[in-house]
Design a protein around this nucleic acid. Structure first.
Lengths: 147, 147
DNA sequence: CAGCACCTGCAACATGGTTGCATGTGCAAC
DNA sequence: GTTGCACATGCAACCATGTTGCAGGTGCTG
């Protein structure tokens, strides 16, 4: 089946990427990395568990896979506004600044990739590695619904 | 004693503010609100417990006081990078944008109040209420230690 | 195909936050 | 000043998220 060979191929690519980072290409890692690659936004541990569905792996294993992803620089880990960690693929260079807009009404989070704000001035000697901008207010939909 | 009357006066002001919001002026609320007013930065639940010292109140009561402060618009609640909530006085307008720098090495957090970055462009119809900027990298001390 | 290092799963734990319920107290009416 | 009631507090138990230790399984290399 074409579906199956497509899947295999993609998994192979991912597996190669994993091995390139000096680790073992295990099903757990392959699946999680594939998921993160396909995700349009940062995922929580819970999101991933859900997405894995029947192919679920142990809670702890998932935490460890995610930690390993972060350690090896393949992913980023962020605490979101409701104090749960979110994981997203590490961008290869360009994605160091990221802006989110969270609607106080509907709770939806929007990614504002197109508007990378300039980093503010830092004190002498500080080295900036990453920047996250967290905006809050009302999104267009909710603002209109309320008008 | 002058200390005592000074204390009373300040507490009175705070109590009045509390009552103005339609709630009871209880010792717990007065103390917490006074603390937040005096704090230069956002405090965690733990910070507040420490600061209260001998005048400590119950964990749960503190949570409820803080929630009430947020509900009544007197304070803001934010999850910081290590996924604990931080509380700060609601600013009357000027303090809506806030920038933090967290050092990946030593974990210390610096407040960059002096450099309020301009808010990025938002999509049509979005209403911005508050903005937090989370910068990461190495602080001057750690950068030097590593050089 | 054998061995070892690394990975996984389970169970127990830690921390931060929340809920239910009985008791206490600020405040206002008298 | 006393009384009453609604609201606030304290306690204990609970929940969710994340972490640690350890025994057993498995990808990789030789």
């Amino acid at each position: 089946m074409s579906t199956r060979s497509r899947r295999s191929t993609e998994a192979d690519v991912v597996a190669a990427q994993i091995r390139a980072s000096g680790a073992r290409a295990t099903p757990a890692r392959i699946r999680v990395l594939q998921l993160l690659r396909a995700a349009p936004a940062a995922l929580t541990h819970h999101d991933i568990e859900q997405a894995l569905g029947d192919a679920m792996l142990d809670r702890v294993t998932l935490y460890r896979v995610l930690d390993w992803l972060v350690e090896s620089g393949l992913a980023h880990k962020n605490a979101d506004a409701s104090r749960v960690f979110r994981f997203s693929l590490a961008a290869p260079g360009e994605h160091t600044a990221h802006a989110h807009f969270r609607c106080d009404d509907c709770g939806k989070v929007y990614c504002l990739d197109d508007a990378p704000p300039p980093p503010p001035a830092l004190p002498q000697g500080f080295q900036l590695a990453r920047m996250d901008v967290d905006l809050r207010g009302r999104c267009a939909t909710c603002a209109e619904a309320r008008a």
